[in-house]
Amino acid sequence: MKNLFLALLARQPTHGYELMQMYEGMFSTVLPTLNAGQIYTTLSRMERDGLVRKSTIVQAHRPDKRVYALTEKGGEVLQAWFNEVLTGPRIKDNFYLKLMGAGLSGTVDPSQLIKNQRREYLQTLHNLNTLSLEPEMTENPSKLVLIQGAMLHLKADLEWLDLCEEMFNEGAR
């Protein structure tokens, strides 16, 4: 969240409420919702760390407006985030160990595990597929591309299950 805030503030100084609106507008469907408290906690932490500077604008008949601006250090931290390349493949596989465990235990048929897992992946793929085909997606390419990325990963997971199944079937022969 910190880095996204830095990115939003890099455009122009903004007050907290506006920041929340921008965040909601862009990320409400892909990131957990934030309440005002979380936003201000994050901002004050960033202020403490010298990433943003707060200035207060006194308003005659309304509460004071707190405007946040990026500091030089904040700009550097943001740039460092951009420069950092993500390492390693995006793999988080707990199924592999389960499958191996099933083979070792002899108490459960690994191919049944594969079937169940395939069903689950296909259902998720179905949900994403349906979502990706909703009419609003044509006007929301940044959301669509995220969904399509997730779909490609699921497709790979499904193909990998085929390989697992083949391995067990050949072992059985």
């Binding site: 469907t29 892909v30 349906t130 959301k143 997730a150």
Partner: peptide, 8 residues
């Protein structure tokens, strides 16, 4: 499907 992406 609203919360689907957040969850996933």
């Amino acid at each position: 499907t609203k919360t689907l992406l957040v969850e996933l």
